[in-house]
Amino acid sequence: MKSVRLWFKKEGLARFISHLDLNKVMTLAINRSKIPIWHTEGFNPHPFITFALPLSLGFCGECETMDIRLTDDDFDISLIPERLNGSLPEGIRVYRAAAPKMKPAQISKARYEMKIGADGKSGGEICAEIGSLLNSAEVITRKKTKKGLKDIDLKPYIKEHDLKQDGEFAVLNMTLPAGSVENINPILYLNALKEKTGGEYFYICTRRKIKNENGDDFE
């Protein structure tokens, strides 16, 4: 039995597939492509798939990963991406298969790009609003935790970021804590912005990188 890590993109309309449903989509694709995947041995055997870091509903991802185990050690894993891609819905594409080098628990941060737009506002105006938000002494918003809603200050988390205008959009790139220890969802910044200005925004958020503590890509 060998473990394989698969990297895939989730873009366009596929960003509206939830994490739970993604598991189903991948299971069906694997069944269909006849990859010799290991099945769990419980009461209801099913293909064993684990995702390193769930992606929020509505987000695109460029370096998402899932791990599977193969029952056939001689199976050529380089065949997997092409086989799976014929069985996946629009917007999900597997582009790499390799033996895993890191454990999902080593994930500590992620890089996001958030394109923010608003009806009736130019990219420049939105940039100005975001700039003023991030320059405040503190950026308070409410975050759902296991113990209920809690106020948090987002200011300390946003060390690495840049902000630029792209036509009608403001584009905010930022690196935030991610993983099982501490996870800050970039949508919180948008929530803070909404609270501050009272305006309505739409966004396309893309997770571009997943990294360990040293800043190395998750491999």
Partner: peptide, 9 residues
């Protein structure tokens, strides 16, 4: 939202 997107296999 997946109800409204189409694009299924």
């Amino acid at each position: 939202p997946g109800r409204y997107t189409g694009g299924e296999l």
